[in-house]
Design a protein around this nucleic acid. Structure first.
Lengths: 332, 332
DNA sequence: GTGAAAGCGCTAACAC
DNA sequence: GTGTTAGCGCTTTCAC
């Protein structure tokens, strides 16, 4: 049985009767070779089933053509992150880049990745992978601020405080006077910002704050238990804002069981929109974080930093929206 | 201003007063160098801030340490695929592999990726990326069969026909006699299998089949319109099985508007489970596709093929389950 | 318009 | 126990 000869550039060059250089230039359309030889080389390459080795190319060009993406481990099934991922991937594809998912290293030896830069979605202060990446030499862009003491090369920010104010104002205008917040923990910049904005808003309006904090990525059972406890302790609550992704729809059964009528004697809103909130009964008002756009913005900023178009330390704003639905429209 | 000297292996070796080889062996703990020199080299490397170049290593070792993952473009925000992705990523991390997301090439030139193998989730016959990958030389593992005429190196399969039978039997046992299927298109093996199993089941039970097919990844508005039309045309329908991910919860408002009471005069079930189905009113019965396990199984099979432990052409079964909820439990 | 040679940073075979 | 050498497959000077 014959040894399988690898089809690399040399094999193509040899078979086409040209040099490595010419073969390379022909296959890459460098505009250096004559049209005739180019066609010939391409034909030979096809016949041999040649495919270029991207790793060798990467080594030579000192660029991997790949960026890394890291997300919090705990929240792997939210629609928000899925959209965010595809926002990054889509933008990267436009720049002819691949995207590699970076997770916790189960194998401690593997600390270096084949990436030109990294996007961090909601970097947790407590995440060791985040720390390692920020301490490494590759440029890092974060979506939301890193609450620790490292400086990423770029940051994409949304004004969550302003948007929460808008939501609270809306609830207030609908007559709500006892607005509770089912909060996300302060390990993310987002969770922290929401808590602060809520407390500040309550103080400005001289309304009592009713805040219950939950760990990032808490299971639905925990969310439900928190709301149950909240309703027991605070009977006067007439509006509930849920920060964690998925919490608003998860607590619906609890609210119903407590005899509350959504949009009627209890207004309900979510800080993270998702398709499901459109189809609950009633549909639930939510802040639209536009994750796909946010992901794309992060990738764009990273490429701008890699190409030198944007300086290190650049911070860019990313708009978000509010989707008002029936859950906060008082029916009477 | 001084040129920034790159800190590569040579720099470390020079600074430590040893050869490239010794430096390499010391840093990789090959057990070749004396403990004393190893410590010395490591110390020097740390001082210099050395980090190994994974691309060079990949080239030398003829392995990228990365596998590719491709999913249907149209369905980028489903919980199913998100879990699937993390199943793959998690398993890959255990093997010290990275995972790169492969999407449609916006840039046509980029056809070759830095991966040792590829996992294809629900390969669409019409997807050009799928075709390209299957025609390439890298080993491919698919989740569900590819309905075209290419042979992947490995396949992970679940018995969707048997599970749908179980679901239909369950509905039948609850008294349903006019069961409609909101079907997914036949571009995926999964969608095709469900349609066939449904039609066969209806025929076996001498019940009339009421099947409405929708394109893969149809927006919720289309799902809703289909169900509206279905209810108008077929008043006798007393059970509805929704194949597309997200359809069951999306059509809830339509069913309510039509005056149907779920679990009472209309049983409702989904072929794809998700967290949201637990929180609807009533909770909706669904087939649990165990996407995370499926993703992990695909990655495992790919690694077994790459390492030669599994032969090309291996097909592995992946169990799925049925989560019965109130939407199919007749209350009276 | 084309070719020869250098070298990206690393690991493995073969000395000594 | 350590050094020397030869590549992995490619792109890029530089020469003709």
């Amino acid at each position: 049985m014959r040894e399988q000869e690898p089809v690399n550039l040399i094999a193509v060059a040899k078979a086409a009767g040209v040099s490595k250089t010419t073969a390379s230039d022909a296959l890459r359309n460098s505009g250096r070779v004559s049209e005739k030889t180019r066609e010939h080389v391409v034909a030979v390459a096809n016949r041999l089933g040649y495919s270029p080795n991207p790793v060798a190319r990467s080594l030579r060009m000192a660029s991997t053509g790949t960026i890394g993406l890291h997300l919090p481990e705990v929240l792997t099934r939210s629609e928000y992150y899925m959209s965010f991922v595809f926002g990054v991937v889509d933008q990267a594809a436009r720049m002819d880049y691949d995207v590699t998912l970076l997770t916790a290293q189960h194998v401690p030896s593997r600390r270096f990745h084949r990436v030109d830069g990294v996007v961090l979605g909601d970097p947790l202060e407590t995440d060791t992978v985040v720390r390692g990446l920020l301490d490494s030499s590759v440029p890092v862009v974060t979506c939301e601020r890193f609450t620790g003491d490292a400086e990423p090369a770029g940051v994409v920010l949304s004004d969550h405080a302003a948007m929460l104010d808008e939501l609270l104002d809306h609830l207030h205008a609908q007559g709500a006077r006892d607005i509770a917040l089912l909060a996300s923990s302060t390990v993310t910049d987002w969770g922290r910002t929401l808590q602060r904005a809520y407390l500040a808003w309550c103080e400005r309006h001289r309304l009592r704050a009713r805040l219950r904090e939950m760990a990032f990525g808490s299971p639905t059972a925990v969310m439900q238990e928190n709301v149950r406890a909240l309703l027991n302790a605070e009977e006067a609550v007439d509006a509930l804002v849920c920060a964690p992704d998925g919490a608003a729809s998860a607590v619906l059964p609890v609210l119903r069981a407590a005899g509350r009528s959504i949009g009627d004697d209890l207004l309900l809103a979510s800080c993270v929109d998702s398709a499901a909130l459109n189809h609950t009964d009633p549909p639930i008002t939510a802040i639209d974080l536009r994750p796909r756009e946010a992901g794309a913005a992060c990738a764009r900023l990273l490429f701008d930093i890699l190409s030198g178009e944007a300086p290190r330390g650049t911070v860019r704003a990313q708009p978000i929206g509010l989707n008002e639905r029936r859950s906060t429209r008082r029916s009477r």
